[in-house]
Design a protein around this nucleic acid. Structure first.
Length: 271
DNA sequence: AAGTGGACCTGCTAGC
DNA sequence: TGCTAGCAGGTCCACT
């Protein structure tokens, strides 16, 4: 589920409220993608610091060490007063004096991993190889063009990989390519500098707009207040197979790339 | 070495 | 109405 906008919206919805809270208990449910990697006693008693984001990961700093969290495909975080016993999909609770940070994740592709520092193992290992943040000044047309030229995969696959730029998952990669007028099947090394510049702009503007709209809620995404996102109502191509292109009326096409669905307008998006 | 496909796990929905 | 196949926002790993 959660691509960069959903993760960022989640972060913004609880970071200020949890900062400074003392951890009083930790509860772990069914196994997530990786084990927590530390005993509960190591975490209890510590104070929560800043919550930051790298790609689709959140780093919840404690006064020593911290937790690297990922929402996988179906995860969401809530923060507030605990309301009753954990449900069948609530697999991690960080109980603090100000409320409980709870990870709910039906498919359990998400993760909560202890690390002594964000730039030490195991966090550093998981974050290694991530590309630039889309809002980093260094992510521009020249950078994207140079990086795309080194690959021979479809441009959509290159965006999804996250080794060039992080944050765009299946929804926003499709949307950004529509915005830039580029066929998602086009080989990455055949993209001109000018089109790469447009694509870089499109990636940034698409992700920024999605953050403003609170992310996309397709099934179950909620921020830590429980609010749904509204970007899905604004999607031009994602999930719109067979429906008319908002720009030209041509039916939106659905193809499969790397076992993922890709949506695009065959007229507005050119090779 | 880069590219591709399978694996992880559960729930929902479209279609028969 | 009820069952089932197919599909879902991510990423790691093994294999070619």
């Amino acid at each position: 589920m959660p691509e960069l906008p959903e993760v960022e919206v989640t972060r913004l919805s609880f970071a200020d409220r949890i900062r400074g809270a003392r951890v009083t208990a930790v509860r772990v449910g069914k196994p997530l993608r990786w084990p927590l990697g530390v005993s509960h006693e190591t975490i209890v008693g510590r104070r929560v610091g800043e919550v930051s984001r790298r790609g689709k990961y959140l780093w919840v700093a404690l006064d020593r060490g911290g937790l690297l969290m990922h929402l996988g495909m179906s995860g969401s975080l809530s923060f507030g007063a605990t309301t009753g016993a954990p449900g069948p999909h609530d697999h991690f609770d960080l109980v603090t004096a100000r409320g409980t940070l709870r990870l709910t994740d039906p498919r359990r592709f998400g993760a909560v991993v202890w690390s002594p520092a964000p730039d030490a193992a195991p966090a550093a290992t998981l974050l290694a190889g991530l590309g630039l943040e889309p809002f980093d000044d260094r992510f521009d047309g020249a950078h994207l063009h140079a990086a795309l030229r080194r690959r021979r995969v479809a441009v959509k696959t290159a965006l999804l990989g996250g080794e060039i730029v992080v944050g765009a998952g299946n929804i926003y990669a499709c949307e950004a390519l529509f915005e830039a007028g580029i066929d998602p099947r086009l080989r990455s090394d055949r993209i001109s500098r000018a089109r790469a510049a447009r694509l870089a702009d499109a990636v940034r503007s698409t992700l920024a707009r999605a953050v403003e709209l609170g992310g996309s809620t397709l099934r179950n995404f909620r921020d830590a207040h429980g609010a749904a996102g509204e970007f899905q109502l604004d999607a031009k191509v994602y999930g719109r197979a067979g429906k008319p292109c908002v720009r030209c009326g041509t039916p939106i096409r659905r193809v499969v790339q790397g076992a993922r669905a890709t949506f695009f307008c065959p007229v507005c998006q050119r090779r």
